[in-house]
Write a protein that binds this DNA or RNA. Structure first.
Lengths: 202, 202
DNA sequence: CATTCTTAGACAGCTTAACTTTCCAACTAC
DNA sequence: GTAGTTGGAAAGTTAAGCTGTCTAAGAATG
């Protein structure tokens, strides 16, 4: 198919498709002439993924490019893959240098085997710092609960990764990590609603 | 203190402080003359909260204004309060009208008592839709796990809300809901790291 | 073959958000 | 009284993510 059909099929405006091509998010089609190229089903699927990353995933163009590069990568070992995927994932404002010590102390308490300079540690540290700055107390007991819940999810997430095809595994990790996040957050808010509704009616 | 000291104490540039005043995020100081006003400790704390909401919380100016309005509100019943806080919270692109039926089916399965038109339902639906569009399968079993984890957190979160002062309760709900989110997401990613590290070394 | 439509690619322009700078008259501190 | 600071308004800036315009080259149709 040509660009206008690709745009129609994917629901993405033609100018935007060109923009994604230019930005290197969408691979170029098979050129048939100087001013013509063919696109396939994989381009339609890719556009859906791009829109999911940019929209729901909340990624910037440049971060999405990095994430998609990881998805495209022939891939490494299962473990390195998760690391590569995570480091491509967004980490909020990285110009800030939060104090990692509190976060690291918790991680040691839980005996989690993580890189001390993992981007997620910075995220966690920044989150804790923001809570403290906002005057919100985070007792160990509360963080322990969050850690346990996160760990149970993480265990299953990793177990669910399809290990047969490396390419499929990276894709699974990247998409699953990123796009399940808004679902998890929404579920927590819905749980708040339900719990408070039940308390009220009891 | 006057504006320059407020700016220095809070670490927020003076021009930005004026901007927040203009945007109604920061209440005006006590005017002492036509071109002079006094600010207090509460302004310093408020600026810290504003920066936490805009930075780590990822809110836009207008959403932050709504959230802060909820925080300032004399407050309603404990339950309405959570609802008010949630509806002030961000819901991603609200121009999109995702298909709610799948999300609602899950909620019915879990027998959660939530408003069908709650913003969190849209968030959840949008998240599920993005996953599907990206070709990521979300079996009931997986969502059940996420729901259970979210519910356990939500139960404790609600139990932790200080019910003595309504004003303090709203503040707690808003900040706790919003600013614990990045921490939860970071913990999930760190759990992925730990689990995959353990699998590798075993 | 002639006419009309579509295309790739380059590039300039647009829109929104969040600041940031400039300005000025009114004050304050020395 | 003179140098510096302030509140408030308004214009300017920057970056991100598109969107529109243009041009020469092909495609589609009769």
């Amino acid at each position: 198919m040509r660009i206008s059909e690709l745009a129609r099929r994917s629901g993405v405006p033609i100018g935007t498709v060109k923009y994604y091509l230019r930005e290197g998010l969408l691979p170029a089609g098979e050129p048939t002439a100087a001013t013509q190229a063919q696109y396939g089903e994989e381009h339609v699927a890719r556009l859906a993924l791009i829109r999911a990353l940019l929209g729901t995933g909340g990624l910037s163009i440049s971060t999405a490019r990095a994430v998609l590069a990881a998805v495209d990568d022939p891939a490494l070992s299962p473990h390195d893959m998760i690391g590569a995927a995570h480091s491509a994932l967004p980490t909020m404002a990285e110009n800030e240098r939060p104090d990692l010590s509190t976060a690291q102390a918790h991680l040691r308490r839980w005996e989690w085997q993580v890189h001390e300079d993992s981007p997620a540690v910075s995220s966690m540290a920044q989150g804790l710092q923001a809570l403290q700055a906002a005057g919100f107390d985070t007792p160990d007991q509360m963080l322990d609960r969050y850690a346990r819940a996160a760990y149970e999810l993480g265990e299953q997430d990793v177990a669910d990764v399809p290990m047969d095809s490396p390419a499929e595994a990276v894709r699974y990790v990247v998409i699953g990590t990123l796009l399940l996040e808004p679902v998890l957050l929404a579920l927590r808010r819905l749980a708040h609603e339900d719990v408070s509704a039940r308390r009220l009616s009891s």
